Simulated scan of single mutants.
Amino acid sequence: MSLDSYTTLGNSGLRVSPFSLGTMTFGEDWGWGTSVADAEAILARYIEEGGNFVDTANVYTYGHSEKIIGDYVAGRSGLRDRLVLATKFFCNLYRNDPNGGGASRKAIIAQAEQSLRRMNTDYIDLYWLHNFDAFTPVEETMRALDDLVTSGKVRYIGFSDTPAWATAQAHTIAQFRGWAPLVALQLNYSLLERTVEGELMPMAQQLGMGVTPWSPLAGGALSGKYTRQDVGRTDADRGWMVSGYLADKTFDIVDELRKIAAELNTTPAAVALAWVQGRPGVTSTIIGARRLSQLEDNLKALELQLAPEHIAALDGLSTPTLNFPAHINGQSAANLAHAGATVNGQATEPIYFAPETDAQRY
């Protein structure tokens, strides 16, 4: 597989690369990140390798990320229409403006106009709700997004980091009213964050939403650069975004990643990325890089084909305890095995069945 192995995003005709370029690190405005020159070099290499899916947000480096992308694309004739540019709304960049963020009609339209200006473009290919807004009626949000699609300023819409029930509600309302549907879901998904497998991933598969995982390396905790021996002696580049992961469970997984990487002559990061990209329902994994060398290392994951035993070993170390109703649904699925059914290709033992034969049923 390569970056130009394009696939459609959810139940849409939009074709995207299997790895999306995440640009949260573009700009040094947060005290860490990538210079403009290095960001442009990363963009250039990603596009050169066939990548077409670039993901940003209005809040990334206070809007500088969007501007870096916009300046780069605007200076290259014909490039804009060949790229799928995705950005997000919700976060408020204006301290004294109560309507500067969120998912109200006023906020959505204003944020879209600001992103269009920063990216120097007249349309956004994929516009994400960045976080759940519990204070705005979902009908207001979806109608405003549909108006942006109808106007031509947005092509497709998706939700990021929103509960399954709220996402399903929004999608169903849009379908019933003939509004633009949700075609994609952006989730925090990695070997260290698998709780989305309880409801969000099954929902996305059932409703035709392509999944684009973010932080597949848990901020770098799964890259292999952090070890048990270094705990407390090495500061994580992203502070609390990484340090909270640096515990025994993480190091157990990293040890297995190192073992598999040695077998396959690759890196622990590439193995972790290959695991995420191979999960059911995943369309395009978002990879980030602060240096060109990091991008090149991450792209090696596209060349990997993990063996079933590799996947099983990683699954065994990372499978989460999922909330209700995941457990009881698993029991129900297991009972289907009594009639010859399988669950994810695996036959399982039934939980309960009456001991009598078919002929003795009441």
Rank of each mutant, 00 (worst) to 15 (best):
A184W: 03
G13Q: 10
I328H: 12
D161C: 09
V183A: 05
D55L: 02
D235K: 14
R95A: 15
T227M: 04
T266V: 11
A57R: 00
W128V: 08
A170D: 01
V149K: 07
I124T: 01
L182H: 01
R279I: 02
V138W: 04
L187S: 01
M24C: 09
A218N: 02
A262T: 12
P202N: 14
N323H: 12
S12G: 14
D38L: 02
G78N: 09
G31Y: 06
L295S: 07
A247D: 15
G208C: 05
T150D: 12
G13R: 08
G100Y: 03
A359C: 13
L299N: 05
R361Y: 06
A307T: 04
A247C: 07
S215G: 01
Y123H: 15
L85G: 04
I124M: 03
Q360W: 11
A307C: 02
A164H: 00
T8L: 00
F132A: 06
I108P: 00
N335H: 06
R177G: 04
Y94I: 09
P98N: 09
D248C: 06
A144Q: 05
T266S: 13
Q229K: 14
E199Y: 00
L83E: 07
L207F: 10
I173M: 09
A326H: 05
Q111K: 05
L217W: 04
A347D: 00
A204S: 10
Q169C: 03
D252N: 11
T25C: 05
L273M: 13
L222D: 08
Q346E: 15
E113S: 14
E66Q: 11
G152L: 12
D38E: 15
R279S: 04
K106E: 15
A110S: 14
L85A: 06
T212S: 15
F353Y: 09
E256A: 10
G239T: 02
N335A: 07
R15W: 02
L93I: 14
T141C: 10
L116C: 05
A272I: 08
G210R: 01
R279G: 00
D29Q: 15
A354Y: 06
Q229V: 12
I286V: 13
L299A: 07
N92S: 14
L116N: 00
R361K: 15
D29F: 08
R143P: 00
R118M: 05
E197I: 12
L21K: 07
P137R: 08
H64F: 03
Y6F: 07
F353P: 00
F353T: 11
P181V: 02
L192M: 13
L79N: 11
W30T: 13
F89N: 01
G70W: 03
I287Q: 00
E40M: 03
R361G: 09
P98M: 10
W165H: 13
G101Y: 08
N298K: 10
Y60I: 04
G10N: 03
G158K: 01
F90M: 06
A313C: 05
A144Y: 02
Y6C: 01
G101C: 13
P216Y: 03
D252F: 00
K106Y: 11
W165A: 13
S160Y: 10
G101H: 10
